[in-house]
Amino acid sequence: MVLVGLFVAGVAAAVGLALRAFQENLLYFYTPTQAIAGEAPDGKKIRLGGMVQEGSVRREPGDLELRFDVSDNEKTMTVAYSGVLPDLFKEGQGVIAMGHLGADGVFQAEEVLAKHDENYMPPEVAATMATDGQGTPAAPPRSDAALN
C-alpha cells in the first residue's frame, strides 16, 4: 500500500509539473498584433499565426524568396520564406510560420505550415457558397476558425 501511495504521489507530481510547463508554453503561436507589440521573446524562435492576406504573396524574379503578409484582422506582418510550401498554403488561408522576427520588422520564416478550417464539402458546394455569399464562407474561410 505504501508503494501505491508513492506511485499516486508520483503521478500527482508529474501532472503538476506538466500543467506548469503547459502554462508557460500555452501559446503555440503569436498573432501579428502580439509580435508587433513585442510580447514574443526577443531573439528566440517563435511561431507566427494568422491569415495570408489576399493578393500579398509575391516573389522577386530570379529569387527563391517568397514574401507574404500575415494578418490577424488587426495588424499585419510581412513574412519572408524560401522553401517548400504545403499544398494547402494559399491566400486567404490560415498559416503558421516558425522563425524569428528580423530587425527590419520582417519575419524570417524557416518553416511554413498551412492551417485549414474544419469545413469539409464538395468543390461544387464551395463554389456555390463563394458566389452566393451564403452560409459558411468557403474561400476565404472564417478568420476565427483559422485563428483558433
Partner: peptide, 26 residues
Amino acid sequence: SVLWWAGLHQGPSISKIDAPSIAFAM
C-alpha cells in the same frame, strides 16, 4: 484543446452546437 488554445489542429466538425461543418454526403 482545439477550442481552448490556439494550435495547428482545426476545431471540431461534428461535435459542436451548430450544424456539422461537413457535407452530409461526407
